Simulated assay, not measured.
Amino acid sequence: PRSMIERLMKNGIRVAHAWGMTETSPIGTAGSLPANWDELSFDEQVDVICKQGRPPFGVELRVIDEDGNVAPRDGTTSGTLEIRGPWIIKRYYRADEDAVEDDGWFDTGDVAVLHPDGTMQITDRAKDVIKSGGEWISSIELENAAVGCPGVAEAAAVGVYHPKWDERPLLLVVRKPDSDVSEADMIAYLGDKVAKWWLPDEVKFVEELPHTATGKILKRSLREEYKDYKLKSLADA
Rank of each mutant, 00 (worst) to 15 (best):
N69C: 15
V152R: 03
G109Q: 09
V129Q: 02
I137M: 08
E207A: 14
G20Q: 15
V147R: 04
L190P: 05
K230Y: 02
Y229S: 04
E6K: 10
D185I: 07
E39I: 04
R62C: 06
D236G: 02
D107M: 03
W165T: 09
D124M: 02
R7L: 08
A99S: 15
G148N: 12
D178K: 07
L172M: 09
D38V: 08
V46E: 06
A18F: 15
N144D: 14
S32K: 07
E97N: 08
D43W: 02
V152Q: 08
L172P: 11
T212S: 09
G75R: 00
E154W: 04
G58N: 05
D236W: 04
M4Y: 13
Y189C: 12
V59K: 03
S138E: 07
G53Y: 02
G31N: 12
Q121F: 00
V59Y: 01
I27D: 09
E44N: 03
E135N: 14
V173L: 09
P200W: 00
A35G: 03
S233W: 06
V174R: 08
A99N: 15
E6M: 09
I187Y: 05
E154R: 13
K204D: 02
D180F: 02
P150R: 07
S132C: 13
A126R: 13
A30W: 03
T214S: 15
L234W: 11
I49W: 00
T214L: 13
D236L: 10
E39G: 04
L218Y: 11
G28K: 05
R223S: 09
V46L: 01
G12L: 12
Y161W: 15
A153H: 11
D201Q: 11
G20C: 14
L61I: 05
L40S: 03
D117A: 10
R62G: 05
G148A: 14
A195G: 10
F106M: 09
L81Y: 00
K232L: 07
D180S: 06
E202H: 01
K10S: 07
A153C: 15
I64A: 01
E60D: 09
D96F: 06
V181E: 09
T24W: 00
M9W: 00
D47T: 09
R73L: 01
V206H: 04
M120Q: 06
A188C: 09
E154L: 10
A237C: 12
K196Q: 15
D117R: 12
I217K: 14
A126H: 07
S138N: 06
P150F: 06
I137W: 01
D74R: 00
A99C: 10
G75K: 00
I49G: 03
D201I: 06
G79D: 06
K127F: 11
I122P: 00
A112V: 01
E224S: 08
R54Q: 14
N144Y: 03
I5Y: 05
I140S: 11
D110Q: 04
V206I: 10
Y161H: 14
A237I: 09
Y189E: 12
I217D: 07
D185E: 07
S179C: 05
V147D: 15
Q45C: 04
C149F: 03
K216I: 13
K131G: 05
R62W: 01
K90Q: 11
E208V: 08
W37Y: 10
E6Q: 09
D185A: 02
W197I: 08
L199H: 10
L61W: 03
G12E: 11
F57N: 07
R168Y: 01
